[in-house]
Design a binder for these strands. Structure first.
Lengths: 341, 341
DNA sequence: GAGGAGTGTGAGAGCGCTCTCACAATGAAG
DNA sequence: CTTCATTGTGAGAGCGCTCTCACACTCCTC
């Protein structure tokens, strides 16, 4: 029966009810093994009766751990995708944190001033560790925090070494997509790449080049266009490619949003997909499945990325180990009508 | 100069450095006016010198306030939109909370079991208040928390009265869109509505009916289709409408995603937009502007909604007032090519 | 000049918890 | 039967902060 009294129960009260000391209740609550089975069950009964829930503040005060971790997602990253990247990675993070009863404190700096404020906040030690999801690689925050001794895990490849991070295997994912196109008999495989100052953009282009090279084909810069990950950007990049290399018979597009733009440009140009031109996107966002024709795409394990980040961070926080690790998650190629003969 | 010593400075140390008592430092830090100007600046200097930051846990322990509020976004809501509803509302909330130095603790229950866990967590008093963003109206959580004396503000119209909430004026927004179509000379104005168990879905349909009625037109259920807020749902709903009422000359669609689906169905059916059929969507998501032709839409002030929710909650937390309030935010009609002759 | 009404400051209790240390009780080893 | 671990438990000291209360000073007012 949960007590209906206004003030929540304290350790003291539970101890009195169970006829033991505060210390013993604390042991039971925190899973210390050295408690007689009999005592333990008496305490557990008292905890249940009084509806006792430990006071986080009091616990934090003595353990010097807040039980919460900060998740920093700069505004541009949050807005970037039409597809639900943002909720999905948060979900993965949230899942993993919930298992350890850790709180997720969300921070979304929008302007430079916010970033400074957020940095100060994090450095003040209000959280036990920090997860940083950033698609642009230029953020100085992770190194700064690391220098102050605050555990940090970055999502996506960070600019500098020495920082623990989790990334999707953009390079291999892209290469696999291109290999698929080549195996299908396509010979003029173009690509619409993302911004080259973003690791995801650069890595996917590298994967494209790698696959082309491995197939023994000569590199051809006429077949490469850089765009900005937007639908409109994809459309105009496709138009430029068609103008420059009218004989292309396939295109690997570094995001689904751009892929949908490319499809629309191909349609306007009277090219049939996949008969004249095969298209493969990246992200496997809901958009891809709903496109006309449905767009083949490289699927990223976003939730898993979040979960992995959180788990790495928790390990750093609890073990105080400071070895930089990196985890690269594999992608899956999802074949749909846009690349099927 | 920020101290480089490992342990962060405490009130005690600041007090010693400034040659005053702990109480006085506390007064300065918390902006108590009754401190001599001279004393105050001495304390402030010491704070700066030592890089003092108050320990949240210690403060919480005595004030019985955690300085954080919980934001609950059930998974389906987070995933629902292709448009960035989720980051936008969080951004509004985050902004308002940052002004009062409140932490945003994010909770994303996915399954029923999570909801129970989250409910327990919130009821345990680990947060000072709760914001609940839910598009489905059936959640029992807000009432439960309210009963336990925890301040709650809901985003979107909740099922029961007596709960403070912030909503967008879905009804008026829809009515305005339909009025615009009618004023343009359209006479067979259809609608693709959202799920009727969601307040946003029901309210937008009500707005449609209201505008039709106000114009003195007879209600015609042949012109109403219910869909599920998805692109594919919009497409097939449009097909059904065309089959049933081939002479329709306009359609108000309760979301942009469905609107884009409707556009594609109209195109397949050989209807020119806006010449044969005018289309207006809802949400003003990025999708709307990128559609072909660009889709007119009803813009919702999402960030403002988040900000308003947070401000209402903060007021409830600090003033301990428990009067249920409601705030309805106005929408804007954004006219694009899809409804322009 | 006595009494009040501020105003500025310090002493000290205590928020609810963890954790060290001491100690009792038990059993194994010599 | 002592000695020494081993195990189970309690006493008590804080963690860093806020807030009440008391007190020392002003500065008026009659």
């Amino acid at each position: 029966m949960v007590s209906r009294s206004s003030a929540p129960a304290t350790l003291e009260e539970v101890a009195r009810a169970a006829n033991v000391s505060r210390a013993t209740v604390s042991r039971v609550v925190n899973g210390d093994r050295r408690v007689r089975e009999e005592t333990r069950s008496a305490v557990e009964a008292a905890v249940r009766d009084l509806g006792y829930v430990p006071n986080r503040a009091a616990r934090s005060l003595v353990t010097r751990r807040s039980g919460s971790i900060g998740v920093v997602i700069p505004e541009p990253t949050a807005q970037l995708f039409g597809d639900p990247f943002f909720p999905r990675i948060l979900r993965g993070i949230g899942d993993a944190l919930a298992e350890d009863e850790m709180q997720l404190v969300l921070l979304m700096p929008q302007v430079r001033a916010d970033e400074v404020r957020v940095g100060r906040y994090l450095a003040a030690g209000h959280v036990d560790g920090v997860l940083l999801v950033s698609l642009h690689g230029s953020d100085p925050l992770p190194e700064e925090l690391q220098r102050r001794g605050i555990p940090v895990v970055v999502g996506g490849r960070p600019p500098s070494a020495g920082i623990t991070y989790v990334d999707v295997d953009n390079r291999r994912g892209a290469a696999t997509a291109v290999q698929h196109l080549l195996a299908d008999g396509r010979r003029q495989v173009a690509t619409i790449a993302g911004p080259q100052d973003m690791p995801a953009g650069a890595d996917r282009l590298a994967g494209y080049h790698e696959a082309i090279g491995s197939a023994g084909l000569p590199p051809n810069e006429q077949l490469v266009e850089i765009a900005d990950f937007s639908l409109e950007g994809g459309r105009s990049a496709m138009e430029r490619l068609l103008a420059r290399a009218p004989r292309l018979d396939a295109v690997f597009v570094a995001s689904d949003l751009m892929g949908v733009g490319a499809l629309s440009a191909l349609q306007s140009a009277g090219r049939a997909v996949p008969d004249d031109v095969a298209v493969i996107g990246f992200d496997d966002s809901p958009l891809a499945a709903q496109a006309q024709p449905p767009l083949s795409s490289v699927r990223q394990p976003i939730e898993e990325m979040g979960r992995e980040m959180a788990q790495l961070l928790i390990r750093m926080v609890t073990s105080r180990e400071r070895v930089a690790r990196r985890v690269i998650l594999a992608t899956d190629l999802v074949i749909r009508a846009s690349s099927r003969r």
